[in-house]
Design a binder for these strands. Sequence first.
DNA 1: TGGGAACCTTT
DNA 2: AAGGTTCCC
Length: 295
Amino acid sequence: MSSPSIVWSDWQPLVLPEPLSPAVLTEVVDGGQTFRWNHSSDGIWQGVWADCVARLKPAVPDGLLWSAPPELAGMVANELPSYFGAGLRFDRLVDDLPWRSDPHLARCLKAFPGLRLLRQPLEETLLCFLCSSTKQIVQIKQMVELLAQRHGREIAPGIHRLPTWTELAAVSEEALRSCLLGFRARYVNQTAQILAANGDWFNRLEQLPYHEAKERLRELPGVGEKVADCVLLFGAGRLEAFPVDVWITKTMESRYALEGWTPQQIAHFGRVHFGASAGLAQQYLFAWERAQGRS
DNA sequence: TGGGAACCTTT
DNA sequence: AAGGTTCCC
């Protein structure tokens, strides 16, 4: 993953409003929100988003240091805090969740202190989650890495950003299939045709309130309820979005007695029960449920 | 409106 | 054998 020809800047602090332990950092960058961060060595993570490449290293006690190729360091210094949602006080948002009356939520919050939602570039968030259906994190990472290497611009030696939608519109469905997308290749291809023909599409999307933005996203081939909510939550800062996947379905059925509910009903319950930051609650429930599966 | 099919890798 | 879903009949 790391290229020997890359020079890295000196480590500098990333200032966040709340501490982030190494374990919770792992959950943030490799727990299903994003798919382009890889463990390089000794707890160092290397990631790519938009035109940025960075390394991240936990620092005692719960701080974070970053490094980037010198020619990108200015941009990364600017973009990294917003990517990590440094402008949001997640501790306050968490405190507003109904943990006082919801013991399961309280347990999840305690298990992953400082868990954050990333604020990712909207356009590539859509691409990643279009690739995500019935795939696990490792497989999604594999697909988007191939898309980047073969169709995205090189931003540092050996490191490529994800292709833009304009670039994707020129890639054949066949070439997308060879990036292991399978039936998702058609979704990406058709979506790219629509987006490339509407230069203003993402700007207009960001102006819309949550429900209308979700409807607009769902007009795109391959975007259903779950993918639309992931795109809005991780790429547009809509914290009320409550993506319901198999893990959340499992959690809500067993911990909230919602057996037999449809995913749509579960999503509605989630937004009502957890409130304005339902998506943040979702991330905690999701992390906790996955951790149960592993242990 | 519910269930099967859509790819292809990993388990 | 089934996977962190969508689409279509």
